[in-house]
């Protein structure tokens, strides 16, 4: 295969992934800024400047690095690298299953970093993060299966060009996925392992022992994460490669994010037992019912393909 043929076949994918790697921090940071503004308004306050998350991260790079050990920083870098890779995989139109595995791996590096710090608060934070993973992973996997059942492919590139929006055939899975998004965005009631505001029994939980540039890297990693999660939500609404459907998807994803902020401000933090139970019940009901109905109605995969 010569270079031209390669570019013709993969050019768009590479471009899209490259754009993601470059622009995601911008989008994620802005999203965080908007989030803090809206949260402040909901609490009767004015809130910080829109660009505050960028100031924070830049500030963290200005601080002298104090780390408990070198291993900790190594894991943080791996966490960031794998999150970037996960997102790039998604934006390059890659395999959803691979995407999920890479995503999980990234999360595991984060947990390892917290364990490496060897302080009670970060250790308990790490334990809770593991519990949270147990809570949301089943739902994420079911969602991938749902996409396959709906469109006949695990490839994001194929799902984009399906005959109709996936949400038409897997609406319950969409709702279930939104439910576990609360875990991933670390919003109340499921901000058990760490919370955006530090008033928690385990201080900052999993991020307690990080400071300066490593904390900044974690923050940037979360921006990447937020960006592809938003894109994942949008994927439910995209069909036939239609640019308008992409816009629709993005719009819905932002509405979902707004609802997450609203939920964050109207719930207390729950304990881990309820978090896991509720996430599994939601996954069990929405996931299995949706897949069952889909199987019965269409009698096989690829209804929209």
């Amino acid at each position: 295969m010569n270079v031209n043929a390669f570019l013709a076949a993969y050019g768009v994918r590479i471009l899209s992934a490259a754009l993601y790697v470059l622009l995601a921090p911008l989008f994620g940071g802005l999203l965080a800024g908007v989030d803090r503004r809206i949260t402040a308004r909901m609490q009767g306050r004015k809130g910080p400047p829109l660009l505050q998350p960028f100031y924070d991260v830049a500030k963290l790079f200005e601080k002298r690095r104090v780390s408990v050990n070198k291993l900790q920083n190594f894991f943080v870098v791996l966490f960031l690298v794998f999150l970037v890779f996960t997102g790039a995989l998604f934006f390059a139109g890659g395999d959803l299953l691979l995407f999920i595995f890479a995503f999980t791996l990234a999360a595991l590096f984060f947990i390892s970093a917290a364990y490496a710090a060897n302080s009670p608060y970060s250790a308990i934070g790490a334990e809770r993060e593991l519990l949270q993973m147990m809570a949301y992973e089943p739902m994420v996997l079911l969602t991938a299966v749902g996409f396959y059942m709906a469109t006949g492919s695990f490839q994001v590139g194929d799902i984009l060009f399906a005959k109709g929006p996936a949400v038409a055939s897997i609406p319950a899975l969409f709702l279930g996925f939104c439910y576990v998004l609360t875990f991933k965005f670390r919003k109340s009631p499921f901000d058990l392992s760490t919370s955006h505001h530090g008033h928690q029994e385990i201080v900052k939980g999993i991020t307690t022992e990080f400071s300066g540039s490593s904390l900044a890297l974690i923050e940037i990693a979360h921006w990447y994460e937020a960006t592809f999660l938003i894109a994942f939500v949008a994927l439910f609404f995209v069909w036939g490669g239609n640019p308008w459907s992409v816009l629709l998807g993005l719009g819905v994803a932002l509405v979902v994010y707004f609802l997450e902020i609203l939920i964050d401000n109207t719930f207390a933090r729950v304990k881990w037992q309820l978090a896991i139970q509720s996430a599994w019940i939601v996954a069990g009901t929405t996931g299995f019912l949706n897949l069952l109905v889909l199987t019965l109605v269409q009698g096989g995969a690829g209804w929209l393909s």
Binding site: R45, G47, P48, D56, G198, F210
Partner: peptide, 22 residues
């Protein structure tokens, strides 16, 4: 920190964690 004074306007956050504090 609360609505009447709201220091977050200046980007000030009460971290409660010495390792994050300036």
């Amino acid at each position: 920190l609360t609505p009447v004074y709201d220091v977050e306007r200046f980007g000030i956050v009460n971290t409660g964690n010495p390792k994050h504090a300036d």
